[in-house]
Amino acid sequence: MDLLTALIDPLRDLPVIGVFIKLLRGLPMTLMLVVPSVFIGAVIASLLAFMRFSRNPLICGFARCYISIFRSVPLLVLLFIVYYGPGQFREFLTNLGIYWIFRSDYLCALVAFIINTSAYGAEIIRGAVLSINPGQIEAGRACGMSRWLLLRRIIIPIAFRHALPAYSNEFILMVKATALVSIVTLMDMTFIAIEMRYRTPAQNSTVLYCLAAIYFTINYVVAWLFKKVEYRVSAHLREPVTNVLSPDTQPTL
């Protein structure tokens, strides 16, 4: 019975509700990192994706290098480069007048996250554009659409729909990535959890389980929201709902 009591024991030491409330104080930081970085990242990613389609070898090459480099650097390394790196060139950057960006913990983390997510997002968007049926683009051209009209009416709406499932994954990866900012001492949920764990006398790990539960819930909600949006934008692909028994579909005299 010793093993069983030891497994239940952590729950007795800490009132779990209190732990959740304390951890949730870090939630605004997590959201403030994820939401702007994914949205700004998506804008940069679309630019990169279209640069990748460019026939100019310089533009295409730049985008290709950017994507392959930042996809193979771990986010933690990127975070450390942006966070600690500029200290080495302090005078130079102060003269340039941009050192203030690197003075703020939050902006540093945001910059690192945007660079990372834009590289991954660019590949997702490129894949989505490539999966458009060429017939649809030809049809647009045949109707005499200009490049921009074609982009606005045909390519962007279809690519958006194709990119949604993969982007939902990317969003979840970013939510999970925000836990890394605790290593550079930003006060997010993970940081609070680790602090709390050290301060409780028995150092039990209930806090970590609560933390995991919160992240899991956030990701569940994100996945659910993306499914909702996907359902909304694919109305024309669904089977029509024909409910013969409902009174409004009955023919009336």
Binding site: K176, T178, I194, N219, Y220
Partner: peptide, 10 residues
């Protein structure tokens, strides 16, 4: 659904 860092800590 749980960050890798948190899993590593656990």
């Amino acid at each position: 659904g749980v960050p890798e860092l948190v899993l590593i800590y656990i």
